[in-house]
Amino acid sequence: MTLTNKLAPGSIGVFDSGYGGLTILSEIQSLMPEYDYIYLGDNLRAPYGSRSFETVYEFTKQAVEALFGMGCNLVVLACNTASAKALRTIQQNDLPMLNPDKRVLGVIRPTVEVVGNISKNGHIGILGTIGTIQSKSYDIEIAKFYPDFKVSGQACPMWAPLVENNEYENEGADYFVRKNIGQLLTKDADIDTIILGCTHYPILLNSIKKQLPENINVISQGYYVANSLKDYLHRHTDMDSVCKKNGITRYYSTESPEKFEEAASIFMGKKVSAERLIIQ
């Protein structure tokens, strides 16, 4: 199917390297069901977490261009690795040439903005992919808002694959969750708030909470990203006016639609119908 058959002018684009962004989309849909959405998962090239900055940037730019080409005026990078490694360059260098009237938003800043309302002592832990932790994007953003806060990060390279392979409820998942949380708390025993810095991780929330003391808060991004997007559209009426509101969502994957549909039910809690999209 050609790209012209996939046009959906006015849809809000939601992009992720795989399935994790569906946890963000689900919260956005719940808060703003009237809008049209296009979800694009680059499952063929996932995971992004261990890829270089240059590769993540190129892949993310290609996906953004594809969503723009399908009629999206606003794209949300519902992927922490893409937000960490590609967002700023796309916003500053590429958008003026691609289309200065379109916008690309990420998931890191909306998450960081609420930390100060949740943490009581300013000791923050970040659990994320290798790429997100190495980028120190959360450290940098938190320092802008809360310069006195202490931030410790821990890469969890096995968590996303466990979720994507539907192994998130077995003993192996508990083992890696326990191991990585232990490593994080060893870095700072005073952590009172942990950010799940990967959109896959809410699927592991039950296991995560089993391994944490009750006094530690866990921030799952979907709710905060959804509310931030709603606020953005409220403040930018020019963008809101070009977003269609028919309550239609379309799903695309760069890999097998059948495989995507099966996995999506884990993240969305419902069945979806997907199509394949080849991006270059």
Rank of each mutant, 00 (worst) to 15 (best):
S228V: 00
H236F: 07
R235S: 03
A263F: 01
T237G: 02
E258D: 13
K230R: 13
E262N: 03
M239S: 01
T249G: 11
V242R: 02
H236E: 01
S241V: 03
P257H: 06
L229E: 05
K244N: 09
K244V: 10
L233N: 06
A264Y: 15
Y252H: 06
K259H: 11
T249Y: 11
E261C: 06
H234N: 09
S256W: 06
T254V: 09
P257R: 06
Y232G: 02
V242W: 00
Y252D: 07
N227P: 10
C243A: 14
E261W: 14
I248R: 12
K244S: 15
N246F: 05
V242M: 02
V242E: 00
I248M: 07
E261Y: 10
S253L: 12
A226H: 14
P257F: 12
T249P: 06
E258Y: 09
D240H: 11
V242N: 01
E255R: 14
E261M: 13
L233R: 03
C243M: 13
Y251M: 07
C243Y: 04
R235D: 00
E262D: 00
Y252S: 08
K244C: 14
S228W: 11
L233Q: 01
K245Y: 04
D238M: 06
L233P: 04
R250A: 09
K259A: 13
E258V: 15
N246E: 06
F260I: 06
S256D: 13
K245W: 05
C243I: 12
L229C: 09
P257E: 01
K245S: 13
K244W: 12
D238W: 03
V242F: 03
S241Y: 00
N246P: 11
V242D: 01
Y252A: 11
T249A: 06
T249C: 13
Y252R: 07
G247A: 12
D240I: 07
K244A: 14
S253Q: 11
H234Y: 08
G247K: 14
R235G: 04
Y251P: 08
V242Q: 00
K230A: 13
T254C: 08
D240Q: 12
A264I: 15
E261Q: 11
Y232N: 03
N227D: 00
C243Q: 14
H236K: 04
T254M: 15
S241R: 01
I248P: 01
R250W: 15
T249H: 08
Y251N: 07
A264R: 08
L233I: 07
L233D: 09
I248E: 08
R235Y: 01
Y232W: 09
H234A: 04
A263I: 13
H234M: 03
P257T: 07
H234W: 04
S228P: 14
S241G: 00
Y251T: 06
R250G: 00
M239Q: 04
D238Y: 01
A226F: 07
E261S: 10
A263H: 02
E261N: 09
D231Y: 04
S256H: 04
E262G: 00
S228L: 05
L229H: 04
K259Q: 10
